[in-house]
């Protein structure tokens, strides 16, 4: 009997572990029908709520961007995206999601934190623009925080609150939630765009993106 005891113990632990995982992953019974409307975690993590939106919040076409403030390609794309936003105006809803690629971009995370900290004071897009417009200036800097505090002053933030929020839980949670969404959608590079939930894989360049937006507008009858 003792010969089989280790096998019995191993099987018991395996069964216990599987039960724990099953209990943790199964939908909560008391959430009832509300759960049906919530996104499937692995395939559609919702991202930070509320998202950062520019354009018409009720537009029929949503352009969702996953970006890293220190990524050169994102910086190059920024003026193109502004052009696209002004071209489509009220017909487009632009959503920004944080996807800091910490390696190789050593300041990507603190830049995302700065944008989110500004967002807590209602000035996410002002900091977003400031970071992209000055990307070359801060990307190589050694002491990054004073530079971001200076940007915060320039856009009229309460800098004491900005400093508190920079490493605060609220900011960390938003970046984490956007990271979850990025993982669930398989976003591994920046910038990555989705037009009404469809990834712009081969069409990620401005003309391809315009084509996808036009198709989505046609489908919506606009």
């Amino acid at each position: 009997m003792k010969r089989f005891l280790p096998i019995v113990i191993i099987v018991a632990v395996l069964v216990a572990a599987l039960i724990v995982v099953w209990l943790a992953l199964r939908p909560s019974s008391n959430s009832g029908s509300a759960n049906k409307a919530s996104p499937t975690p692995l395939t559609d993590a919702p991202g930070a709520e509320p998202p950062h939106i520019r354009g018409n919040a009720n537009a029929s076409v949503t352009l969702e961007e996953f970006a890293d403030f220190q990524c050169g390609a994102c910086g190059s794309y920024y003026p193109e995206l502004k052009k696209i936003e002004s071209e489509y105006g009220d017909r487009l809803r632009v959503v920004f999601r944080e996807r800091p690629l910490i390696p190789p971009h050593e300041h990507a995370l603190i830049a995302a934190q700065a944008a989110e900290a500004a967002g807590l004071q209602g000035k996410f897009w002002e900091m977003h623009d400031k970071l992209y417009e000055n990307q070359a200036a801060w990307s190589e800097a050694k002491d990054i925080v004073p530079i971001f505090v200076d940007y915060a002053k320039q856009i009229g933030l309460d800098t004491d609150r900005f400093m508190r929020d920079l490493n605060g839980e609220g900011v960390a949670q938003r970046i984490f939630q956007d990271g979850k969404r990025a993982h669930s959608l398989g976003v591994n590079s920046t910038p990555t765009f989705f037009v009404n939930g469809k990834e712009a894989k081969d069409d990620w360049k401005p003309e391809g993106l315009r084509k996808m937006i036009n198709e989505a507008l046609s489908a919506a009858g606009k």
Binding site: A24, L42, L101, I102, P103, Q173, G179, N188
Partner: peptide, 22 residues
């Protein structure tokens, strides 16, 4: 897998680490 956030009670870098590409 459930997309929940972590409560860090001792050190405060869990979300940064667990949302990193690694």
């Amino acid at each position: 897998l459930t997309g929940q956030t972590l409560r860090c009670t001792i050190v405060s870098g869990c979300n940064e680490v667990l949302s990193s590409p690694y």
